[in-house]
Design a protein around this nucleic acid. Structure first.
Lengths: 230, 230
DNA sequence: ACCTGAACACCGTTCAAGT
DNA sequence: ACCTGAACACCGTTCAAGT
């Protein structure tokens, strides 16, 4: 999204912080959270390992910068109602985490900085627009943020699992793979897990995106119940 | 909680998987997620590093076993109403993560195994007891689980931050520390962050546990709205 | 069957030395 | 001011060798 000048300037442009972060995102996307290594990064940038430390304090800061870079283009919203805006923000985050699964681990611990904080702020504004009384606004915005990040992360983890299964048996059909996934649930003793056994059927034919939006709506319904009048 | 025979059997009892996991939990509690090292663990157990691998496949499995061991004693529930049972389950998880902050990172990616799955199952049973129609049951239980784990993890992260601040300035008063925390929010430009600026006041004097329960009630309210009749 | 501990293939980070 | 790359202090994991 936010990548201009992709491969045109190959040779010897300056080693800027911007270029470091962009390359870090590429590595993270290509090889996951473990793929980002100062050695791999310096090799890709055709420089020494220590050179990166002149532009970036440490790996944690680099991961934070990569997160911000991706999140920056992920959520632009202009909808008719506050509810629709919340759904649009939620879907934007969902898709961003789906495309960049390593975001999950990054957002899990401390969404409260820079770009993530901006998203939280925007959710809060919509909560205010929905007429939630003051003391409950923080609770409502937090519930939305936690559900969105958590559910999107789960989805990304599931997708990663499915990808691994696909790598293990590349010839299996899609339905066979889905069946393989739900085996995890159906193998459980129905006596010990009656609820999971009950919903195993739905699980086999659910749409992740729909499920996600249904969850957002569930919380929006709870928020609606907080308003002074029904 | 689940620790019998704490320091009595010091000398040369067999190196069981149980003892390995218990010692791993001790290390995790004492020094955080980074504190668990095969070298530190084998030193504590007065054995070789490789010996542990005879009882445990790898670090990931060891972390999973440690998670299960802690979670096993965390949530026993017998309450009058399904709502009360959900709150009790939620508080049990909240306290467990508060006592063992490393649980957060473990539960973040894939609560869907062993003990965490048991908790999800129990939440689902209460959702069914609340009269939620079939197709919405999975969504409801998932929303509860994600909020509980996410919010408790946030709380643990905040507590860790506060502890670090306390270590940096050990003589500061509690109110000064809280003020230092909320500085992060109040330092933001009110023009760019009107919502965060609005709620900064509440943030200074909130109770984490109360906020958490309010969030659980918010989702319960959303679930109540899903029932056929109001 | 179970344990030992050196060895392997990695990490993030630092730092003298270069330009 | 910015870059180099060897060196340091670690990791998880393996595996011949022991009992």
């Amino acid at each position: 999204m936010a990548s201009k000048a992709r491969h045109t300037d190959r040779r010897t442009d300056a080693l800027s912080r911007e270029r470091i972060v962009a390359t870090a995102v590429e590595l993270l996307d290509a090889a996951g959270a473990d793929g980002l290594t100062f050695r791999a990064l310096s090799a890709e940038l055709r420089t020494g390992a220590g050179a990166i430390y002149w532009h970036v304090a440490n790996k944690s800061e680099l991961l934070g910068a990569a997160t911000d870079a991706v999140l920056a283009g992920a959520t632009t919203v202009a909808e008719a109602t506050p509810e629709a805006e919340v759904r649009a923000l939620a879907l934007g985050l969902f898709d961003a985490i789906d495309e960049h699964p390593w975001l999950a681990g990054q957002l899990a611990q401390g969404p409260w900085k820079s770009e993530a904080l901006r998203i939280f702020e925007r959710l809060g504004q919509r909560v205010q627009a929905l007429g939630v009384p003051g003391p409950a606004q923080f609770t409502s915005a937090t519930a939305l943020m936690l559900f969105i990040v958590g559910a999107a992360s789960q989805n990304a983890a599931n997708a990663a699992n499915a990808a691994e299964l696909r790598r293990a048996q590349p010839d299996a059909s899609r339905t066979a793979l889905l069946a393989g996934e739900s085996t995890m649930w159906e193998g459980l003793d129905p006596g010990d897990y009656p609820f999971l056994h009950d919903i195993a059927g739905q699980l086999r034919e659910h749409d992740d995106r729909e499920q996600f939006l249904a969850g957002v709506d569930l919380i929006l319904a709870g928020i609606a119940a907080l308003r002074p009048q029904a």
